[in-house]
Design a protein around this nucleic acid. Structure first.
Lengths: 138, 138
DNA sequence: TTATTTAGTTTGATTATCAAGGTATCTATT
DNA sequence: AATAGATACCTTGATAATCAAACTAAATAA
């Protein structure tokens, strides 16, 4: 029970710190949090339809339409109408969008490297194992 | 390097899932995410001044003033003017606010219990150790 | 005393978001 | 084939969160 409380607190603390880190990192790009988040999802999962993207971002397709409009205007993504289903639209990164993702992802990797540098190889391995189990349960 | 990528991905996945979970849990309370987040911080760290609360929430004091107005009106918190420094104001939970925090916190604990139930006692212990180190570095 | 810093508030503008309604397209049923 | 229902996306109107900048009051330093 004490362990649970402790773990709960640690996970929340990590969440808050990551949230704050992301905010400050995003601010420097000149884009908004929602925009960068959209780029992140497209960058790490590849092109996808509006519906799926909205689901992954936990927003409605209505909200996403507005967001995608801005990103298209900014030259970061493109809308690709689908022949197979003419209702749906594939959204994909432009080279500029991909560049932004690469850059942002590099910052994430550098952060994780920094955060885990005092973990032994064994601890790192077990952290991977544990987080995998946790995410699977989520 | 492969490990880093893997860990980065796992942490982001966890973050996104927790974010989504929090959103749906908060929705059921009838309060907004920002409101519940404010209650959470006050509940787990105790009463504090506007400035400190704003810092912990990563928002400006201007934003917080508006937020606190709403929470006071909703009966969840109170403003306690300080005699020692008459510029500053201590913000604290009312019994109603505390009840909301208790309830929300219980959901968090239940979630963590659920997520970690397939971890061995040893894994749980090492997860605590690792997350402690990570948060310290953050 | 005067100047500077600090704590909190107010205001105006921007962004993100949702719910609800609308259009076009696809799918299943008759 | 015709119709009904479901799905994908878009549009619109309203609300919430946020910041920057200007403001007030109080504390602190010169």
């Amino acid at each position: 029970m004490q362990k649970l409380k402790q773990l709960n607190h640690l996970l929340i603390e990590f969440y808050d710190k990551l949230s704050s880190w992301e905010q400050s990192v995003v601010k420097e790009t000149g884009y908004t949090l929602a925009q960068v988040h959209t780029i992140e999802v497209l960058g790490s999962h590849g092109p996808m339809r509006m519906k799926e993207l909205a689901d992954r971002l936990s927003i409605t397709t209505g909200t996403l339409t507005v967001q995608v409009d801005k990103l298209v205007k900014a030259g970061l993504i493109v809308r690709l109408p689908q022949e197979s289903d003419r209702r749906s639209i594939l959204v994909d990164l432009t080279p500029e969008g991909r560049a932004l993702h690469e850059h942002h992802n590099a910052l994430h990797l550098a952060l994780v490297e920094d955060l885990t540098r005092h973990l032994s190889s064994e601890e790192q391995q077990m952290l991977i194992t544990s987080m995998t189990k946790i995410n699977r349960e989520f």
